[in-house]
C-alpha cells in the first residue's frame, strides 16, 4: 500500500510538471534570425536605473509569431526561486510584414529594483517567443529564445559606509540629474519668449491691429467703415465719433475742452489738427443753417480716415498722416 501510494504521488507529480512547464520544441535553425542592440552600459547599475534593449526578430514565412508570447510589462522574473529584481517596465513593438518574412521590432525598457552591499551580477532576462506554422495540420508550436544580457549591479555606497551622505568618494562621480526635460522646457520657454517679444514689437509697431481691438474707436471705425455716403450716414458717423470722444474723455467733449481728451490719452494730440477740423465739420453739418451743399462721398471718406486715425491713437500707435485729407471743413 505504501509503495502504491508513493507511485501514485510520483505519477501525479510528473503529470503536473508536464502541465506547468510545458515545453515547446525549439524552432529549427534558419527560420528565425535576430539582431540585438544591447544597452551601452554594462556595469554600475543601481536601484532605480533603467536599461533598454532593442531587438529585431525576423521570421521566415509561413511561420508566424504568436503575440501572446510577447513579453509582458510589469512581469518580474524569478531566478533560483528569488525575485530577479529587474522588471520589464515598458515594451514598444512594431511588426513589419514582407512577402517572405515578418519582422518584430522590440524596444524593451527594464528597471532595476535590486541592490547589494557589494557588486553582484544581474541580467536583463532572456525572452521566449512562440512560433507557429498555420499551414501545419498538427499546429505544432515552437519556441525561440532571446538570450539574457549580463550586467553588474553596483552598491549605492562603499561597503561599510553607513551613511551615504558621508560618502565623499571622488571616485564615484556626481549623481547627475536627467537634464533633458529641463532643457526641453528651457527651449520651449525661450521660443515662447522670443515669439512674445516679436508679438509685442509687432503690436507697438506702426500698423498693428492686435491690441485693443475692442476699443471704443475700434468699434466706431468698424461701424463707420461700413456706411454708405448719404446725409443721414454723415450725421450718424459724426455723432458716433462725438460719442466715442465723450466716452474716452468721460465728459461731453467740445472744441474748448479738448484738453480733457489729451489728458486721458496724449496720443490724440498727434491728430489735433484733424480733431479741430472734425469739430468744424460737425458745426457745419449740425449747426449751420446756410444751405451749403456737401460732397457726402468726400466727407464720409474723410470721416473713415479720421476714425481710423483716432483708432490708432486709441491704440497709442503712430498715425499714418499721409492718408489725411486736408481742408474738409470749409
Amino acid at each position: 500500500m505504501k509503495y502504491l501510494l508513493s507511485f501514485c504521488l510520483l505519477l501525479f507529480s510528473s503529470f503536473g510538471f508536464a502541465l506547468d512547464g510545458q515545453e515547446w520544441p525549439d524552432i529549427q535553425e534558419g527560420i528565425v534570425s535576430v539582431k540585438i542592440k544591447e544597452p551601452p552600459q554594462k556595469v554600475g547599475y543601481t536601484v532605480g536605473d533603467k536599461s533598454k534593449r532593442h531587438i529585431e526578430v525576423t521570421v521566415k514565412k509561413p511561420f508566424v509569431l504568436i503575440k501572446e508570447s510577447f513579453p509582458i510589462p510589469g512581469y518580474e522574473r524569478k531566478y533560483r526561486g528569488q525575485d530577479l529584481g529587474i522588471v520589464l517596465e515598458e515594451m514598444d513593438y512594431k511588426l513589419k510584414d514582407n512577402t517572405t518574412t515578418t519582422t518584430l521590432i522590440l524596444d524593451l525598457t527594464y528597471q532595476i529594483f535590486t541592490n547589494n552591499v557589494v557588486t553582484k551580477p544581474g541580467f536583463l532576462p532572456a525572452e521566449y517567443f512562440r512560433l507557429l506554422n498555420p499551414k501545419d495540420p498538427k499546429k505544432i508550436v515552437f519556441k525561440y529564445r532571446i538570450p539574457e544580457y549580463q550586467i553588474a549591479i553596483s552598491p549605492l555606497s562603499i561597503f561599510g559606509a553607513v551613511k551615504i551622505e558621508e560618502d565623499m568618494s571622488p571616485l564615484r562621480g556626481l549623481f547627475l540629474i536627467d537634464e533633458s526635460n529641463p532643457k526641453k522646457l528651457i527651449k520651449i520657454s525661450g521660443t515662447l519668449a522670443i515669439v512674445s517679444i516679436l508679438g509685442l514689437l509687432y503690436i507697438f509697431s506702426q500698423y498693428a491691429w492686435l491690441p485693443k481691438t475692442r476699443g471704443i474707436f475700434a468699434k466706431t471705425h468698424r461701424v463707420i467703415n461700413k456706411m454708405q455716403a448719404n446725409p443721414s450716414s454723415i450725421k450718424k458717423a459724426i455723432t458716433d465719433i462725438h460719442h466715442a470722444f465723450d466716452l474716452i474723455s468721460c465728459k461731453t467733449l467740445f472744441k474748448e475742452n479738448i484738453q480733457a481728451l489729451y489728458l486721458k490719452n496724449p496720443t490724440f494730440e498727434n491728430v489735433n489738427d484733424e480733431i479741430q477740423e472734425f469739430f468744424k465739420l460737425s458745426n457745419l453739418v449740425f449747426f449751420n443753417t446756410s444751405n451749403k451743399k456737401f460732397d457726402h462721398e468726400i466727407i464720409l471718406k474723410w470721416l473713415k480716415t479720421f476714425s481710423r486715425h483716432c483708432r490708432d491713437c486709441e491704440r497709442k500707435l503712430i498715425v499714418d498722416k499721409t492718408s489725411r485729407i486736408v481742408g474738409i471743413a470749409k
Partner: peptide
C-alpha cells in the same frame, strides 16, 4: 451739465 449733455 455741460459735461453730461451731448451735442449733437
Amino acid at each position: 451739465i455741460l459735461n453730461v449733455i451731448n451735442a449733437p
